[in-house]
Design a protein around this nucleic acid. Structure first.
Length: 771
DNA sequence: GAGTTGTGTCATGAC
DNA sequence: TAGTCATGACACAAC
């Protein structure tokens, strides 16, 4: 007894650790709670005995978390539990977050976890059916017949193919219980399941109606319906888990697709079952794009390792390069969210502590497309469909897929007495290759094109920086207009965007200019800090494009510059990268110098700063300022012209000044817009590159999860197939038989030759579609 | 002295 | 149709 306890406890722990390592959630509580009195008794001591369990007894206990108190087959039990757990994990498309999961195994006081388990377990009773197919001459099984197959079976009262009904001679005893094929029986069990699911106490699993139904099952011959005293004809296989049992486990524990409709057709699932006689190429065809075909595990593993290495490199790059930036960024920084990596933290070091609770199979989404093409079974084939009464089956999740091809790497496939089959091309190989290429390209992009989170963040900082180009307009139109408006209003070179404002500003500036300057060519500003008291003699020219240019481009505070006409000598502003303070100190001459200057010097200075048009206007004795000429509205401008008797030359010059002035401002605006466009495009490119990197990471994670699922499915196939027994209790040879997953959700054991034919047929379909 | 950059100007088309 | 705006192209000056 002590050794048994040790066996159980150690086994549980190892099993739990193993499952946790492969990402399967498991609740050890279920082994210890009252759901499982026998085990508890075993562990705790009293009344159980370790006797070899008859298979059909065990079968009905697995799903209900029950083992008969006096017939506990621990191996089968744990095997079934493992299958159950793995299957439950299958319907979760887990995107591995590369976490280190620490499982806290504890006893759930409320049994909340186990509350979901009896339901799933009990659904086993109504889940699957089995049909024997051995010969190639049993006709085509159509979807209609498949759908009504359970009824047919019920009518027949025995296992028989829906069409031929003559399989009794060739039936393969898979250990399938008759209840599998008995629709009404399954209905009853389903009712029991529903009752139990609706909140029935789990402890009553074995004592309630369901238990009675199960007991009835045990007394009926699986194939003929003949009653027998709970003794399986093939009694030597008592320790073996039947195909039916496994498939019921599969179906019952994977509620995905409960509402799913089965595709009408069957797709072979047998391709990848190792076949000694088949050439490698023949087995690849029926595999779905997702799960078909398996590379040699080494190749796949190698690809995966390569891919992961690339990802790690990328992660390292991100980590190392973004330490300073990403984590100095304020919360909400898009970069921080995009590259949510802790400094110096590898991607896969998130540690989470999970409660070891076994959730139900309610899962997130189904991996596989439900639309699967029908694959009519070749005429004459005899099938052994395992027809579930409900639609919850692997098929709803995996589609019509060649389970063998998907599940079995040739090396892994297998029962002991079969050699490995040919290697199959891994459908993931292409994806992996593509992902790898994408990753590589991403790396290249990061290296060559500066696609780098660091640079991106730096660029964003540049965008936000005041030290760069005069990008006041690069962020928002509001900022643009505000800065521009301030500069233009202060500079009397108003923006062309608002004629009214420009008109007012020009009039005010011109008035100030006319009041402040006495000499021609004076700029249109008034400054209290200066002693300029120039009288406007012949009509000062108030247009100061240079000044407006400077104010716009220097990105300085307009309030500081609006009264500094002497800065107009800065014809080109090449100080974009200089801080405003530097600009102030560098460009502003000492005020004392101005005060020292005489009026003449100042006049010369201002004269030098006049534009060509201003000189021309002064030479032509134009009686009003260029500012007015340029910025007045057409009506006011014409009105102004009418007030003066102007020669044709003067009028022509005025019109040219106006045209050039407007064009000049238009050119400035145009350039500014162009620059803004370029900057915005650059920012968009950065955003897109970040999105691309994120999507690539997600893709890799999905592929990783897919691979894990594939491995689990492979192992499940191996488990199921390896436990199939014929009427003599001998295992089936993978070289002769294969499991095929039908479109209606049933699982068939078919001859390999037939599976190969279907594989070829299905291989042609995608090609035809492409054509 | 050549290249770069900012600016002004012209020509042109669109509205 | 004239006025205005946008923009490409060119010239020029400053760096």
């Amino acid at each position: 007894m002590l050794s048994l306890k040790k066996y159980l406890t150690e086994g549980l722990l190892q099993f739990t650790i193993l499952l946790s390592l492969i990402g399967v959630r498991v609740d050890v509580d279920t082994y210890l709670t009252s759901q499982l009195p026998p085990l508890r008794e075993i562990i705790l001591g009293p009344s159980s005995a370790y006797t070899q369990t008859q298979f059909h007894n065990l079968r009905n206990t697995l799903d209900g978390y029950g083992v008969h108190p006096k017939s506990i087959d621990l191996d089968n039990y744990f095997t079934a539990r493992r299958l159950l757990s793995q299957v439950r994990a299958l319907d979760r498309f887990q995107v591995p977050t590369t976490e280190v999961n620490a499982w806290l195994v504890h006893r759930d006081p409320e049994g909340s976890v186990s509350g979901s388990q009896p339901s799933s377990g009990l659904t086993l009773e109504s889940s699957s059916g089995l049909q024997d197919v051995t010969g190639p001459d049993n006709g085509v099984r159509e979807s209609e017949t498949e759908q009504g197959f359970s009824e047919d079976l019920e009518d027949l009262g025995a296992v028989a193919p829906p069409v031929s009904g003559d399989l009794t001679k060739e039936d393969i005893d898979l250990g399938a219980g008759r209840e599998i094929f008995d629709y009404s029986h399954r209905q009853k069990e389903q009712d029991v399941d529903k009752d139990l699911q609706d909140g029935a106490e789990q402890d009553d699993t074995w004592s309630g109606e369901g238990a009675e139904a199960l007991a009835r099952n045990l007394l009926v011959d699986g194939e003929t319906g003949e009653s027998f005293p709970a003794q399986v004809p093939g009694g030597e296989d008592q320790t073996a888990l039947s195909l039916e049992e496994c498939l019921r486990l599969l179906e019952a524990t994977c509620p995905f697709g409960e509402n799913a409709e089965f595709p009408a057709d069957i797709s072979s699932i047998t391709e990848a079952v190792p076949s000694e006689s088949e050439p490698p190429g023949l087995q690849n065809n029926l595999l779905s794009p997702l799960l078909t075909g398996t590379d040699s595990p080494f190749d796949l593993e190698q690809q995966w390792q390569d891919l992961m290495s690339i990802m790690e490199m990328q992660a390292m790059e991100v980590n190392t390069s973004t330490n300073e930036i990403l984590y100095s960024a304020p919360p909400g920084d898009p970069l921080s969210t995009n590259y949510s990596l802790a400094p110096n933290t590898p991607i896969n070091q998130n540690v989470s502590l999970h409660q070891a609770s076994l959730g139900g199979c309610s899962q997130d989404f189904s991996l596989f497309s439900p639309e699967v093409e029908s694959l009519p079974v070749a005429s004459g084939s005899t099938l052994l469909p395992l027809v579930p009464s409900n639609s919850t089956s692997l098929n709803s999740t995996f589609g019509s897929t060649n389970l063998a091809g998907l599940f079995f790497p040739p090396q892994l496939n297998g029962t002991a007495n079969d050699t490995a089959g040919p290697e199959l091309p891994d459908p993931l190989g292409g994806l992996l290759d593509e992902a790898m290429l994408d990753e590589i390209s991403l790396m290249d992009l990061a290296i060559e094109e500066g696609f780098n989170p660091v640079q991106a963040s730096q660029l964003e900082e540049e965008f936000d920086s005041d030290s760069g180009l005069s990008l006041d307009s690069s962020h928002s139109p509001s900022s643009l207009s505000s800065s521009e408006g301030s500069s233009s209003s202060s500079s009397s070179s108003s923006s062309s965007s608002s004629s009214s404002s420009s008109s007012s500003s020009s009039s005010s500036s011109s008035s100030s200019a006319s009041s402040s300057f006495s000499e021609e060519g004076a700029v249109g500003y008034s400054s209290d800090s200066e002693t300029l008291d120039l009288e406007e003699a012949e009509g000062a020219v108030g247009y100061q494009p240079e000044y407006s240019k400077f104010c716009r481009m220097s990105y300085q505070d307009p309030s500081q510059l609006s009264c500094l006409p002497y800065l107009e000598h800065v014809g080109h502003n090449h100080t974009y990268n200089m801080a405003p303070s530097a600009l102030d100190s560098a460009d502003l001459p000492p005020p004392s110098a101005l005060k020292k200057g005489s009026k003449e010097k100042q006049a010369d200075f201002l004269d030098k700063q006049m534009s060509r048009d201003e000189h021309r206007a002064r030479a032509m004795k134009i009686p009003f300022t260029n500012d007015k000429i340029i910025n007045l509205p057409v009506e006011e401008f014409n009105e102004l012209l009418s007030k003066y008797q102007l020669s044709e030359a003067q009028l022509s010059l005025i019109r040219d000044i106006r045209r050039r002035g407007k064009n000049k401002m238009a050119a400035q605006n145009c350039r500014k817009r162009k620059l803004d466009t370029i900057l915005n495009l650059e920012r968009d490119v950065e955003d897109l590159q970040r999105d691309k990197a994120r999507l690539l990471r997600e893709k890799v994670e999905f592929l990783r999860s897919l691979r894990q699922m594939k491995q689990k499915v492979q192992s499940l196939y191996q488990e199921v197939f390896g436990r199939l027994r014929d009427e003599n209790g001998r295992p089936y040879s993978p070289s002769q038989y294969a499991l095929q997953y039908a479109g209606d959700g049933s699982v068939l054991l078919i001859p390999r030759t037939l599976a190969d034919q279907q594989a070829r047929r299905q291989e042609r379909k995608p090609k035809d579609r492409r054509k």
